[in-house]
Amino acid sequence: MIPGQVTGNRYASVAMLRMPTEVHLAMVAHCLRGLPEEACGLLAGHLATGEVAGLYPADNLAHSARVYTLDPLAHLRADRDAEGRGLELVGVFHSHTHTDAFPSPTDVAQAPDPGWHYVIVSLRDDQPVVRSYRIVEGAIEEESVVLRTHWARAS
């Protein structure tokens, strides 16, 4: 595939999510801390390029091992903060404590934004598994998650 080629998903200009390793580690750590419940948070960055620059861990108001409801006040504050940094919210991450890193029917039904990236951290096995998806009108499309050790070193 040609880098940057538009895929069948009209919202996905680039079928990958690029993420600093620090953000990846912080995301997995937040999910592990949330056990035995599902954990969640928001990702900020640039929608046009699929670059993540930071994350906003949030409370799961559902306090459940099966479902999550991201604290809407945390969402509001994250949105304001991201904008103040010249970023925008680009997606949401949440953990699956006992299942694959694949969107559940509830994840698909409740996906709030076709432009967002939906990251799932599976904690079912010994090693956390992180995968990312686009969800548009009920259709699930996986994208690669590319880690960068440091943006300044990225070439």
């Binding site: 809407p72 969402h75 509830t106 409740q110």
Partner: peptide, 10 residues
């Protein structure tokens, strides 16, 4: 006034 989609799932 802020409008926010509910962010939830399973």
């Amino acid at each position: 006034v802020s409008i926010l989609p509910a962010v939830a799932g399973g």
